[in-house]
Design a binder for these strands. Structure first.
Length: 665
DNA sequence: GCAAGATGCGCC
DNA sequence: AAAGGGCGCATCTTGC
């Protein structure tokens, strides 16, 4: 029988002493850090009290459990370092927070216990301990309430494992343990480069800041109010809200006014540079003496099972493009100039930065292998379209993929009547369309959204060939064009987008069939839970399916329409809570594909970890970053990541693998 | 003074 | 009938 362990440690939010603010590593090394209490439970007896009274030998040789094992294990190691705990033999330390998330997307103990046992825990004791030392707590009530609280936590941690541990597959246990190991191990940082980047970026920030007229009045640099006031002052419209009016609308606004007003470019630049500096500062603050950077990655951070970044630094969303700085310290944002840089950097053209670029600040270049080792980067090639084809039973497409064709070309051959040679080179237009269809239309996306999706994913403006009657006209009746020469279209336009969406659906009955099947199964589970089985053996659960009327607000007309929708309980990341959301066939298909792709990748991660000689440092959904010894090559990695797990036979898997001096796009 | 919401900027 | 989805963090404003 395992033993659960829970440490209570001093935290002080006001003075920025806490694991959530500092990250676990910095927190436990902070001079103010103090672990004052430990509680344990072995299924029969619970004990909680001050560390000085704890019989550590009781844990020797025991399999341990903690709710957030990564944290408690680090606290223990720190205590050993400080001579406050003996070094014990601990064969395993499992995490019930990770288990709870796997089971029901409730990570914190309170909500997990509420869902799994129907018991409401009182978490107020911990909340009230903010800024209080053990001495403070003993003065209050002899520490009694904290002792009871800590006991309760250890007991429920143990009970979660005891009741549900067997539902956690072996592979998932390994992935949980690997994730905990990765976070603690961290990654080697090029510290000199870090300092250089921060120095250059700070100068760039000053440059941008000096161009903001409202700074003189003491307004904040990115204050929306200050920007709006400035717009009124010079009699130009306020910048369109990107999430509301669309990115394109904003780009047009910026293009129109940036030549005349330098602050138009500068205030957006400021945001970009400032974000960059803040991110780099987090690395600097958390850097350990050996130059490694510990991070946090959440096992099962998304309801599909994907990992999520966490803990103040997200390892999964580092920008791909460097910040380019010109001789005067301005951020280079002009698309033509960026293209020129890209051309110049191509090895075929010399592979050097143009002379007018003073610095290229690439955050990814800071992440390297440990001394004497090498970095290997490997990502699964278009795993989601491949998985979709497998799930839909599209054997024709699978066969083309198995022959080594890209999903875009295979799709064009399979459904778009392409019979020529290599599509990418022979018909660029069709290739772009195939790419947009594959990436954009597999999950039920509608024509309106597809216009942006095609633009973002395949740089395709599918409205440009729309018939003239859809093109907007000005007051004089002349046709309207954007700055780049493409037409401005009327509301209700989208002739070609509608046509493409319709054609895709007609030509891919297996995919639409999958949407329909899932949609119908979902509807049939009305009144109960909908459980979607995944090929790997795990499943996604959608709780308490209901048919209900939901208000839809039409942005254009301002009207509110009521529509029937099928809804279920699902985890909402933004609110960090389980809420009711609408679902439909396309969305369920998307969840199914993403979850299955994650499971395939999970098998690869464990295979890589167990192969030896290479440490998976962290992962980004379909991409593994490995710190390898000299005996390992890209071939080994590529081979392991090209296997289809036995539960998904015939899935054509392939990986792009490279050795690199540092992390890169 | 703090929390929550809106917005922006990043990623697959 | 139609419906992109999955994430995290910083900054600013507003409301209590």
């Amino acid at each position: 029988m395992p033993t659960s362990v829970d440490f209570e440690t001093f935290y002080d939010k006001k003075n920025k002493l806490s694991a959530s603010v500092q990250g676990a590593d910095l927190y436990i090394r902070d001079p103010r850090f103090n672990a004052y209490m430990v509680s344990v439970y072995d299924g029969t007896e619970a004990w909680a009290g001050h560390l000085s009274r704890f019989n550590w030998d009781a844990l020797d040789g025991q399999h341990l459990l903690s709710h957030n094992a990564g944290f408690d294990a680090r606290v223990y190691s720190r205590l050993v370092e400080q001579g406050l705990a003996p070094s014990l033999n601990i064969p395993s330390w499992q995490c019930t927070a990770n288990l709870s998330t796997y089971l029901c997307m409730r990570r914190d103990l309170g909500r997990a216990v509420e869902f799994l046992f129907g018991v409401q825990l009182d978490k107020s004791v911990r909340g009230n301990a903010d800024g209080k030392t053990w001495e403070d707590l003993t003065k209050e009530d002899g520490g009694k309430s904290m002792i009871e609280y800590a006991k309760q936590d250890a007991i429920y941690c143990w009970r979660i494992w005891n009741k549900y541990g067997h539902l956690w597959p072996t592979l998932e246990k390994k992935l949980s343990a690997l994730t905990i190991k990765q976070c603690r191990r961290g990654v080697q940082i090029d510290a000199d480069k870090l300092e250089l980047f921060i120095g250059v970026a700070e100068k760039m920030r000053v440059q941008a800041e000096q161009a903001l007229p409202w700074m003189a009045e003491g307004k904040k640099p990115t204050s929306p109010k200050a920007v709006a006031e400035q717009c009124r002052r010079v009699n130009i419209p306020c910048p369109p809200v990107k999430s509301h009016d669309g990115e394109e609308a904003y780009d047009e606004w910026a293009a129109q006014f940036s030549a005349k007003y330098r602050w138009v470019k500068a205030y957006t630049d400021f945001r970009v540079i400032n974000k960059f500096i803040t991110t780099l500062n987090t690395i600097r603050e958390r850097l350990r003496e050996n130059g490694t950077f510990p991070f946090e990655l959440l096992y099962f951070g998304a309801h599909t099972g994907r990992w999520s970044g966490s803990g103040g630094f997200n390892m999964q969303n580092m920008r791909k493009e460097p910040l380019y700085c010109d001789d005067e310290g301005w951020l280079i944002t002009d698309p033509d100039k960026l293209k020129e840089i890209e051309r110049a950097l191509d090895p075929k053209n010399g592979g050097q930065l143009p002379s007018w670029v003073a610095y290229a600040l690439d955050i990814r270049a800071l992440f390297t292998a440990r001394p004497g080792r090498k970095l290997i980067l490997s990502d699964l090639s278009q795993i989601e379209p491949r998985v979709l084809a497998w799930l839909a039973g599209d054997f024709k497409l699978l066969e083309l993929l198995a022959r080594g064709q890209s999903p875009y070309e295979a799709h064009a051959r399979s459904t778009m009547k392409w019979e020529g040679g290599e599509l990418k080179y022979e018909d660029k237009e069709l290739y772009a369309l195939a790419k947009a269809r594959v990436l954009g239309l597999g999950f039920g996306c509608g024509w309106k959204k597809f216009i942006t999706v095609a633009y973002n994913m395949a740089s395709l403006d599918i409205t440009k060939d729309d018939p003239e009657e859809y093109q907007a006209t000005n007051d004089e009746g002349e046709l309207c064009f954007k700055a780049d020469g493409t037409p401005v279209m009327k509301d209700g336009y989208g002739y070609n987008s509608r046509r493409i969406v319709k054609e895709y659906r007609e030509q891919n009955p297996l995919v639409t069939g999958l949407w329909k099947t899932l949609d119908e199964s979902f509807k049939q589970s009305e009144g109960g839970d909908f459980e979607m089985a995944l090929p790997s053996g795990r499943s996604l659960r959608y709780g308490e399916v209901r048919r209900e009327r939901r208000a839809i607000h039409d942005e254009e007309t301002g009207e509110t329409k009521w529509k029937w929708a099928m809804t279920a309980l699902a985890f909402d990341q933004k609110r960090n809570a389980v809420v009711r959301k609408p679902f439909y066939g396309g969305l369920l298909t998307e969840n199914l594909v993403q979850a299955t792709a994650r499971d395939v990748f999970g098998e690869h991660l464990i295979a890589l970890d167990e192969a030896g000689g290479m440490d998976p440092l962290w992962s980004v959904h379909d991409e593994a970053i490995l710190d390898c010894d000299a005996s390992r090559s890209t071939k080994d990695v590529k081979h392991l990541m090209s296997q289809a797990p036995e539960w998904i036979p015939g899935l054509p898997v392939s990986a792009d693998t490279q050795e690199a001096p540092h992390y890169k796009k």
